[in-house]
Nucleic acid binder design. Structure first.
Lengths: 222, 222
DNA sequence: TAAGGAGAAATTGCATGCAGAAATGTTGTG
DNA sequence: CACAACATTTCTGCATGCAATTTCTCCTTA
């Protein structure tokens, strides 16, 4: 931890807990025992409690009065609502990009998309996952509105526990890339409504991919 | 406080502090001394600190390590970004309403708009302010997406310290009502793109109104 | 008078302790 | 064997205390 001067223990704890959840270290529904966390990170319960409040505000965990905090669990219906919200936010970002991106930002996005073609061809899901994150981050930045960008990035983080394996589904890599291509063309051509529509469709597909995975997992258990 | 069983002191404190800020009890930039808050609400500093973390997550206050928390101050540039984000969110809600509102929800919105006509005619800014809040709340609900609805409502709360006097500006009441009419017609006719555009324009006008007020206030000081 | 600095006071960050609620284990009863 | 009632343990919610840092005050000096 390199920023001991500018951050409190609570701040660093909040980051650490959120990272651990997003990395899958705690499963949805897992109890987040205050004492356990305090021991694990070598602090007292006080900063742990403050950090939990902070993480809870992002929606990653749920605080239940007089009960342990738990990693947020969502019903299929809630998940659909969350993915719907994320799709709307990302679509809004794409629309704003079509209007507001600088020529240089447009070229960078185009170059990234080109580089991702090779990853699809090589079937390199890991590299593609990283590049995909960058692709979307560039679109957040391209809005030139830090508030919208942060809200959307936060929504993406909040859904990360449910998106982890999205590129494992067969054929998803090239489908995702084709979708990106449609979004990219709309942004480059400054067609705002089309950028919105294509991105909405693209993110909705991510939800479908997740549901397919869940169904397959359920089928294997049965 | 009627829900002592289901909420902790911290939860109630967070609400009370946020309400006090939105009601103007603390000016932007005002220091939120922990001990002062603890005495004011008759609790110890521990729940106060936890509540401050929670309120800070909404953006209403800023936490500065080893310094007092303060009511969030925003530069004119940040305020423009915030209003821009709110406009995009509200426009998204309006677009979703055009697609998703039930016939009953549409009728309710239309009835409310009709009732607001009388308030404009009577020049009753107070009643109009309340009804305006309801109008927008109905649009959040009409999205049928609780996540988007909550995000947008939260953004509105966050900007409330800067919207307080918006209907004091001359002619604003009838202008706002006319704008509402345009949004309403688009929603009723299920014209999604038009609902988006008209709402975007409407909320942008609120920002203009605020800026006018600030300029007038500055002029009076000079 | 303004600027600077040393010391005092106030304030935050965090650990600890305790009361009460929730979770868990145990025993008795149908 | 299931299950209900009770006892025990564990955990949360909050108050309090202390060290470290910031802020305030007042004095010195140019």
């Amino acid at each position: 931890m390199n920023n001991q001067d500018t951050q409190t223990r609570t701040d660093r704890l909040a980051e650490a807990i959120a990272d651990a959840i997003m990395a899958g270290g705690f499963q949805p529904g897992a109890k987040l025992d205050e004492q356990m966390l305090a021991e694990r990170y070598g602090v007292s319960r006080t900063p742990v409690r403050e950090a939990l409040r902070q993480v809870a505000a992002t929606g990653l965990i749920a605080l239940r009065p007089r009960r342990s905090a738990i990693v947020a669990t969502v019903t299929p219906a809630e998940l659909e609502t969350l993915f719907g919200a994320m799709a709307e936010l990302e679509a809004t970002c794409a629309r704003m990009c079509a209007i507001s991106m600088t020529p240089m930002e447009r070229r960078r996005l185009e170059a990234l998309h080109g580089a991702m073609q090779a990853m699809v061809a090589a079937g390199d899901a890991e590299a593609y996952t990283d590049a995909n994150q960058t692709f979307h981050s560039q679109i957040y930045a391209g809005t030139h509105n830090a508030v919208i960008a942060e809200m959307t990035a936060n929504m993406r983080r909040r859904l990360s526990p449910f998106r982890r394996a999205q590129f494992r589904a067969p054929g998803r890599l090239s489908l995702s890339h084709a979708e990106h291509g449609a979004v990219l063309q709309a942004i480059l051509a400054a067609r705002a409504a089309e950028a919105h529509a294509t991105m909405l469709h693209h993110v909705s597909l991510v939800e479908d991919a997740y549901e397919q995975l869940v169904e397959q997992a359920s089928a294997r258990l049965a």
